[in-house]
């Protein structure tokens, strides 16, 4: 996997309209991004799967998953190891394309467009759906260049300093690194590196941020900072987070999806409902530690 595919921004796609998922058209003009207006508390669905099946070779990883993920809320995916939650996350921005044996059936809609349609460019898709991973993965570049990376690839270098500063502030990192922007991102602490990766992701202004256990490698203080940040990010972005930490899901998410063994989405509801009075006994057994 290249470094580029590990981030929100990806090279070679700087000429497309940001709201388009279509494959790039040679010779088209670069279009400055135009953020749609965003209202807080929206229940509008931004991601929807219908009868989604995923196979790795002959093994089925997801079974007929139907889910509607609301805009600008935090949706948590929980479940035991191997239940398919990360597989689902990686379907959203087609990261599973990078796995040869992976096969996807059914529909996965982003803004009502099936991301697996032939005319969808996965690179363009990933620019609108960023991703943050379990292990912080800053590039071996300066803090500044890490954040500016995607913007430069998209030829969005106008007011670059301001954009870098805005992204670092958005990731709650600016105050800690504003005096050392030329230093390597690898010199930062684990928690700071993770926030740098979040800054890199939001610098190109995606609509969705996928997080695959973003705090599991961090200490409690850094975890708390990331959780606070996720809450703030949900003001502007749709956040989908996979976590093994159920208390973390309970703390930070608006909606929770519970996957259980066999890639089955058993229950999806308001987080409060899931953790206070789930509908399904299997979910109750899982979250109370009687199963799994």
């Amino acid at each position: 996997m290249s470094k580029e595919t590990m981030t929100t921004s990806n090279p070679g796609t700087e000429t497309e309209d940001d709201d388009s998922l279509a494959s790039p058209t040679p010779g088209s003009e670069a279009v400055e991004e135009s953020s749609p207006s965003r209202s807080s508390g929206s229940e509008r669905t931004v991601i929807e799967s219908r009868n989604l099946d995923v196979y790795y070779g002959t093994e089925q990883a997801l079974q007929s998953v139907d889910i509607q993920i609301p805009e600008r809320q935090v949706t948590a995916m929980i479940g035991p190891s191997g239940c398919g939650k990360s597989t689902f996350l990686r379907c959203i921005n087609r990261m599973n394309d990078l796995i040869d044996a992976a096969r996807v059936e059914g529909d996965l809609l982003f803004q009502n467009k099936n991301v697996y349609d032939d005319d969808v460019d996965p690179v363009a898709l990933r620019r609108r759906i960023g991703m943050v991973f379990q292990q912080p993965n800053p590039f071996p570049k300066s803090i500044y260049d890490n954040v500016a990376y995607g913007l430069r690839l998209q030829n969005k270098t106008e007011n670059l300093d301001e954009k870098v500063e805005e992204a670092l502030k958005g990731a709650a990192l600016w105050d800690e690194v504003s005096h050392q922007l030329d230093e390597s991102g690898l010199e930062l602490s684990g928690g700071q590196q993770q926030r740098l990766c979040i800054a890199r992701a939001i610098a190109v202004d995606p609509e969705v941020i996928l997080m695959d256990e973003p705090a599991s490698a961090l200490d409690p203080v850094a975890t708390s900072q990331i959780e606070d940040l996720i809450d703030e990010l949900a003001q502007d972005y749709t956040v989908v987070i996979v976590t093994h930490n159920m208390q973390q899901a309970a703390r930070i998410s608006d909606k929770t999806a519970v996957f259980l063994t066999g890639g089955e989405l058993v229950e999806f509801d308001d987080t409060q409902k899931i953790f206070e009075n789930p509908e399904h006994q299997r979910v109750e057994d899982y979250i109370t530690g009687k199963f799994g």
């Binding site: 159920m246 208390q247 309970a250 953790f275 206070e276 009075n277 789930p278 109750e284 979250i287 109370t288």
Partner: peptide, 9 residues
């Protein structure tokens, strides 16, 4: 133990 669901209740 951070109980949830029926345990919490």
């Amino acid at each position: 133990q951070q109980p949830v669901a029926s345990d919490l209740r």
